[in-house]
Write a protein that binds this DNA or RNA. Structure first.
Lengths: 193, 193
DNA sequence: ACCTGAACACCGTTCAAGT
DNA sequence: ACCTGAACACCGTTCAAGT
């Protein structure tokens, strides 16, 4: 008797697989997000998933994109100082990846591997170019911001996992993310002519 | 006929296992750094390793510490400006983790999980406190620097792996690391009274 | 105390066969 | 075209048994 097997109503599709994977991720975490578990949840064999994605990594790339797509849209007006806009976007991305267990790990890996998560980089690069950062440096600054956002989120989420395993790690102040972000924005500001 | 099985001369030990794992890591990478492969390399059963480490993660923590311990020692004199000292240390750490395939991934994971890599954080925190950064903010600044160092190195190494798999990712300028580091140091400088 | 040998409970991926 | 069912080639970890 399988634990949770839903009868299949609709045919499989990219979107249905990603939605199911996302729901499963939030319940069991990345290590238990197996192709078998996703198949069981959808009421199909694990091998059926390979008709829609070339391999597991391609599917995880789509999941990472969905996590980022669920980040709230910026509310700061376009006329606001670029510092405020950058800080808002980074805070939203931080919230988006920490909304799912191991979300930072997943998004960071997929972005580094070139299999997803390109949008935040493009958005931040554009925002910084509009702010007057030279086109040669804007991508570097955007990457540096994202390394911080994902790295910090990864740290927080690993801290949670480690704490659950009874491992001691350094405590993290709630203000820590904001302070780090201000360091970065000040540093980028110093590059302006 | 096993591929490479060395006859065992000395008894197993922490140090011998770590050294063997490090050699294997540099040849085959993290995904193929299995307990079986390490055992074969040492001429023992994989289960023998569990008499010296509680589990694979604990062993990988020791490997991460060894990678960091092999970073070159600072040559910049203690009297030099803190900016130069921070930049040198970060550049050395960057070199240390990129010296082994998947080194950044390994060190970042173990540090986040609290199973290794504590030394760089302690060193940078101290250095920044000596520079006049308030004790409340110095750890945050140190963490922000390390997120950048490891994040950037992780990116570069993933780029290599992806390229080998024929996946296209954005090109990276060699000056990119230095530019990002200067952004961070400028930002930390802005926190000084 | 240290290690062997075998097993357990899993993985991702492939592929002939069905519909 | 889409999916099943079974297999393949692996994993990390455990544990009785040997020395």
């Amino acid at each position: 008797m399988p634990p949770t097997r839903r009868t299949r109503q609709q045919p499989l599709s990219h979107g249905r697989i990603v939605a199911t994977a996302l729901g499963l991720l939030s319940r069991v975490g990345l290590p238990d997000l197996t192709m078998r578990a996703i198949g069981t949840e959808l009421g199909v064999q694990q091998s059926a998933l390979y008709h829609h994605f070339a391999n597991k990594q391609a599917m995880l790339g789509a999941v990472a994109d969905e996590i980022l797509a669920r980040a709230p849209r910026p509310s700061t007006p376009d006329e606001a100082p670029w510092q405020a806009r950058v800080q808002e976007r980074c805070t939203q991305l931080h919230a988006a990846v920490t909304a799912y267990p191991d979300g930072a790990d997943l998004v960071m890996s997929m972005w580094a591997f070139g299999m997803g998560g390109q949008t935040p980089f493009d958005e931040l690069s554009l925002l910084l170019r509009e702010a007057g950062i030279s086109p040669a440096v804007a991508p570097t600054a955007a990457r540096t911001l994202l390394h911080f956002v994902y790295g910090h989120a990864y740290d927080e989420q690993s801290h949670d996992v480690a704490a659950r395993s009874g491992i001691l790690t350094a405590e993290r102040e709630p203000s820590d993310f904001g302070t780090g972000l201000r360091i970065l924005v000040s540093g980028i500001e110093a590059l302006l002519p």
